[in-house]
Amino acid sequence: MPYRILKRKDLIPGQTILMVVDAPMIASKSRPGNFVILRVSDKGERIPLTIADADAAAGTITIVFLVVGKTTAHLATLREGEDILDVCGPLGRPTHIEKSGPVICVGGGTGIAAMHHIAKGHHQAGNRVVAVIGARNKDLLLFCDELGSFCPEVLIATDDGSRGHKGFVTELLKSRLEEDKEIAEVVAVGPVPMMEAVAKVTLPFGVKTTVSLNSIMVDGIGMCGACRCTVGGKVRFACVDGPEFDGHAVDFQELKMRLGQFRTEEKISLEKFRGQS
């Protein structure tokens, strides 16, 4: 069964790409927070990507990825009408969503795409969603319009002040938490330092904080433990126990180290690929 790319859009040219992929079985089961494992070529590596949106009726899932290594660089060469070799999912536990009260969803960089799916889930459950998104500059902001279509507020931070608040999402988050005592939960998806900083900000407020971990995975179905992380002093597998965990209990230092364990090999692979193409 081919996993055909029905639509492809360069959100940030050469850097961040959105693809709508034909995958009816995955689409019909997909819920916010789920991810897929995909493989682009016969000799390729399995990598996890969060599902940024799913349309059960159309039988499609949306993935958004940043070109960081060989697999994503290769994936970025595929055009509409071409197929992704393997797409497996939906994996991981879906986001725990119930009618709980106002939720702040924080997204950074490519993580905004995955956060958007979770925010939409909260909105559909009847929770008021405040979106807080950040990027280096205004051209790197994703999903502003999509978030604006259902979030009463979309707060924006850019490092250079080219749009919205000049500074970090955590500053916007902090002032919002100070003003708004009703917030039931904060969800953060983005680079590890951002999620760590969000958890640090929310801790004194005692607000439940959920982060989505992007650990290295091999099978994505619990078999190998490559994605293990320490949460509340216990070893958990991001693929089957997560990928979302209590941000106040995650050992972010360990996560950062483990994410970097194949940096040399990743560089070799990417350089080899760039040399060939």
Partner: peptide, 21 residues
């Protein structure tokens, strides 16, 4: 499981011809 899956399923013994390290 991780070590063997990387090497057997991912053919990591043939890295970088195969991508899995």
């Amino acid at each position: 499981n991780e070590y063997l899956t990387r090497v057997n399923l991912g053919r990591a013994y043939a890295f970088p011809d195969y991508d899995t390290p």
